[in-house]
């Protein structure tokens, strides 16, 4: 029994030692990046700091414990600023242009309004075959899921802050990060949910 206890203790100590070492590398890597990077254009050094969400996702390898994920998702949900006029649908044609536009937030950008980079990761309209596949296909989005106000609100929220629905989602928080404006997000909602949008044809 004693040996058993000792080995358990030993294993635990070893596990802690490993974890400590892993933490060391992480801390060391972060301070090294802060030393080696410099601000350029709009990309300032504060971009290397993790916010609370990034910290949890980084520390848990994007698989946070369920309880923490739910709490933090709730916090993210609270950041979403819905349109004051209560309308979610903008102009799908403007939305299509935004979806094609991959510009924004890099050190080469600045001044000009950002695009949504949507086609980089999603299939959306039927005419564009050069789409990425990191995200799911959004073709026939409204046709499949319906056009109602709840779906509209969800899509608006998802674009505004994807992390409110899936904490460590790969999708950027386009509203929360100040990348897209309310009007731009509305136009993207229309691209997916206007019955006249080619997405739903």
């Amino acid at each position: 029994m004693k040996t058993f206890q000792a080995s358990i203790f030993g294993a635990a100590a070893l596990a802690i030692a490993f974890a400590a070492q892993a933490q060391d590398y992480r801390a060391q890597a972060i301070s090294m990046m802060k030393r080696d990077f410099h601000a350029k254009g709009i990309a300032h050094m504060d971009r290397l700091n993790e916010d609370a969400l990034q910290l949890i996702c980084n520390r848990s390898h994007n698989e946070p414990p369920k309880g923490i994920a739910e709490t933090l998702q709730h916090d993210q949900l609270a950041t979403i600023q819905y349109p004051a006029d209560g309308k979610f649908l903008g102009d799908w044609k403007a939305g299509e242009k935004l979806a094609q536009n991959g510009r924004g937030m890099t050190w080469k950008d600045g001044g000009k309004p950002s695009g949504g980079s949507c086609y980089n990761c999603h299939q959306i309209g039927p005419a564009t075959t050069s789409f990425g596949d990191i995200g799911n296909s959004l073709l026939h989005f409204g046709k499949i899921r319906g056009y109602g106000p709840d779906v509209q609100k969800y899509v608006y929220g998802k674009i505004y802050n994807a992390k409110a629905y899936n904490l460590c989602s790969k999708m950027p928080r386009f509203g929360h990060s100040g990348t897209l404006t309310e009007k731009q997000i509305k136009d993207l909602v229309a691209l997916l949910l206007d019955p006249n949008s080619p997405v739903n044809k």
């Binding site: 972060i30 969400l53 990034q54 994007n62 990761c121 990191i134």
Partner: peptide, 29 residues
């Protein structure tokens, strides 16, 4: 250390190297 840098998510779009280069058979455009 390189592995940590590769997986470090930060910035306005929450990206790490792994966001795009951590899964098999994916593409951008």
């Amino acid at each position: 250390l390189g592995e940590e840098i590769f997986n470090y998510r930060a910035g306005p779009w929450d990206f790490s190297c792994a966001t795009c280069h951590g899964e098999d058979n994916k593409r951008i455009r």
